[in-house]
Structure formats: C-alpha cells, structure tokens
Amino acid sequence: MIFTILFYTFVVVTAIQVLYYLFFLTFAYGQNKIKINTDVNIPVSVIVYVKNNADVLIDSIQNLTKQKYSSFEIVLVNNASSDNSLDIIETLQKKHSNIKVVNVENTEAFWGNKKYALTLGVKAATHEHLLFTEINSKALSKNWIHEIASNFSQENTIVIGYQKLKRKKNSFSNLLIRFNHLLRTIQSLSFVKFRNPYNATNHNFAYTKSVFFKVNGYINHLNTFIGEADLFLKDAATTNNTTYSIKLDSFVVSNKHLSFKEWFYSQKQTSILFSLYKLKPRFFLRLFTLTKLLFYLLAIYTTILNWKLSLPFIISYFLIQYVVLGKSASKLHEKNIILLLPFLDICLVLLQISIFISNQISKPTHWK
C-alpha cells in the first residue's frame, strides 16, 4: 500500500518535472518575437560599476572603447575605491573623450551602497538608453552595444543580456558553477517569454532612463545590499516591456574565475533575495525545486523496491532533460557544460539542500 502511494507520487512529480522542461523548450526552440532594428544608431550611455578593480581596469575599458558603435559614452562609476582605481580611470578619461567619471565618496547615509552609486551614474548619463556592465566582465564582440541596443523598441524598454562565466579547464567546481548558471538562465529567459521577468544581471542589462525614473530607481530596495538588477526588474518590468538577446555578439564574459567558496556565498545571498521576488515566479520556481528533490528521493526508493516499474520514468526524465538543456546550451554556446548530466544535476540538488541548511544556521551579511 505504501509503495503504491509513493510510486504514484513519483509518477506525479516526474510528470511535473517533464512539464517544466517542456516549458523551458519555449526558450530552447522558440524565437524571441521582437523586430530587431539592424540599423540602430540611438545614442547609448554604457554605465560601468567600479569598486577596487585597478588590476583589470585598463584592459576592460580599452575593450569598451573599441566598440563599433556610432554614438556612445562610457560612464565610469567609482564607488569609493580604496585602491588607485580613481587615478587610472581619470588617466583613461584624458585619453578618450567619450569617458565620463562619477566618483562616489562614502557618506554616513549611503556608506558603500552600490545602488546609490549606480543612481548617481544614471543621473550623470547623457543619453536616454542605458547599458549596464561591470568592470570584471568584457564584451565578447566589438558589436556588443549594437546587438543589445538593436532590441530596444517603442514597446521594449528593458533588455536582458547574457553573461558567460569564465571556463577553467579540469575544474569540476567551475563546471558545476557554470551548469547552475546555465540552468538559472534558461529558467529566467523562459519566464521572460511568458511575460514574467524576474532575473537579470548588471553585467549585461539595458533599459531607458524613463523606466528608471518612473519607478524612482532603486528607492524601494535601496537598503537591500544585493539584487540591484533583479529588484529593479521586479519594480519596472511589465508584461510587455522586457525582452532578451541571445546572439553571441551580445554576450559578455567574466574575466576571472569564481571560486567555489565565493559561489557558495553568493548562492546563500541569492536564496535570500529569492524571497523578495514576485509571487508567481517564486511559487513556480519553488515548485520546480521541490519536485526535483522529490523525484530523486522517490526514484531511489521505487528503484530499490521495483526497478522495472520506475526505470522507464527515470530514463524518460533524463532523456527529456538532456534534449532541452542540450538545445538551450547550444543556443547559449555552452555545449560542453552538460556533458556530465545527470551527475551535475544531482550535485546541484545536494548543494541546494546545503545552502538551505547553511542559511538556517547563519544568514550572510550585507554585500557591498
């Protein structure tokens, strides 16, 4: 009797998981229905956040100055760096006429507040269309600004770009981190297609000044030291003003490897940020995580007791997962990430449990 109940529960959670992956197919196989303006020449302000990045500043800014775009400025927002970042960017400003420097000093009210610094950058920007990145990411193409800007239209005033994580050879932790990043991207862009955007990154994110000031910028979450892109998206995104770009020329790539310790801490922060999302994406993402956990637990149980009944469901699940993630990884030029499926998926579930337990013991402090 108990086996029968648990087996049917296993069938139900497997079906739910399959429906989720079929939902993700909208990103993998569907086309983003936006009329791309290939002759775009709207002026763009590229806002770059800087915080103690002296070691990579010159290379990153030179990469930006080589962009093939007719009209753009680079707004460098130096948020009270304690190294010689300010000296470097002021030197670069003298060499490039389209560089503007916003030097943010610490104040008692906004000490180290990234959102406050970015707000000053937005106010200093000359142009209506804003493109955000950070100094530890580099555009993959000289056409990066063009590709992102071409997605703007009268309806689409918010554009989400993709950030590739730097690959480290022969590193399982790096592979796992990039797999998690891939899965989160597939989920978030699928929600964009169904007009419920909830996730973005300031490493590759664009919107208009009008949208920013319409919601008073970051005012609703100014004292939350994480989630400047996600929480702004929560306030500013509507059912029809947000799109994304997955053309290779629109990608940026991180210029440093994220250590497992850094990633684990960032995931603890992300899990706390998750509670601030809108109800609909929060509910469906939690259901996805819960049914995935139940799938693995019940798969083990039912396989031990009657593998002939459970095995077809398990094989079908992994085949569908492989097809969907494989196609999605190909779209994002990340094919090598899924080579170790389903091992990566199982490891990620275990880590999510660890992160949940860790947050119950000690929540991370605010991030600067």
Rank of each mutant, 00 (worst) to 15 (best):
S354T: 07
I58Q: 03
P43F: 04
V104M: 08
K234G: 00
F288R: 15
I355V: 14
T91H: 08
I145T: 10
T91P: 02
F179S: 02
I89T: 03
E73P: 13
I337Y: 09
V323R: 12
E155Y: 08
T157E: 15
L86C: 09
I219T: 15
K292G: 10
V122L: 09
F288I: 09
I88T: 04
L182M: 03
H129Q: 09
I177Y: 02
I355K: 00
D345H: 14
S171C: 01
L64C: 11
L348S: 12
V252N: 14
F10T: 07
N199Y: 12
K100V: 14
S153W: 07
H333Q: 11
N113H: 06
S82P: 00
E108G: 07
I346T: 01
L339K: 15
S71N: 14
I300N: 03
T26I: 13
F343T: 03
V159S: 11
T224E: 11
A299N: 10
K138P: 02
K268E: 02
F274M: 02
E105H: 13
N240R: 03
S310T: 09
L276I: 04
N98K: 11
I2W: 05
L305D: 09
F172K: 10
F179H: 12
I148R: 06
A28E: 01
V44Q: 03
L92I: 00
K193F: 02
S266Y: 06
N241V: 11
S210Y: 09
I314P: 13
F72I: 08
T270Y: 06
L309W: 09
F172N: 11
N204L: 02
N220L: 01
S362R: 15
